[in-house]
Simulated assay, not measured.
Amino acid sequence: MITSKEELREYIAADNAWYCPSGAKEKIAAAIVCYPQRELKRYLYFLRKQEYYINTARGNKVKGLLGLYYERRKNLLGIRLGIEIGPNCFGKGLCIYHGGSIIVNTAVRAGENCSLHGGNCIGNKGYRGAVPRLGSNVDIGYGAVLIGDIQIADNTVIGANSLVNHSFAEPGSKIAGIPAKKIDMYQE
Rank of each mutant, 00 (worst) to 15 (best):
Y53G: 06
L66F: 12
E51G: 06
S4A: 05
I175S: 01
I122A: 06
P87F: 01
L47G: 03
K181N: 03
V138L: 02
Q37M: 07
S162Q: 07
G118H: 10
L116Y: 07
Q151A: 06
N124V: 00
N105E: 08
V164C: 04
C114N: 12
C89S: 13
I102K: 07
A153E: 01
I96V: 14
R58I: 00
D15Q: 00
I96T: 14
L44W: 12
V157D: 04
I140E: 01
F46V: 03
N55A: 03
G91Q: 01
T156A: 05
N161T: 05
G93H: 02
L81P: 02
S167N: 08
G135K: 02
Y11K: 05
N161M: 11
V62F: 08
N161R: 09
I12D: 03
V62R: 13
I152E: 05
Y127H: 09
I150E: 10
A31Y: 06
I178K: 13
A29Q: 13
A130I: 02
A107I: 02
N105H: 15
C20H: 11
R133E: 09
G135D: 03
R109V: 03
G93C: 04
Y70P: 05
S173V: 00
C121F: 14
Y45V: 04
P21S: 08
R48E: 01
N155R: 04
I83H: 08
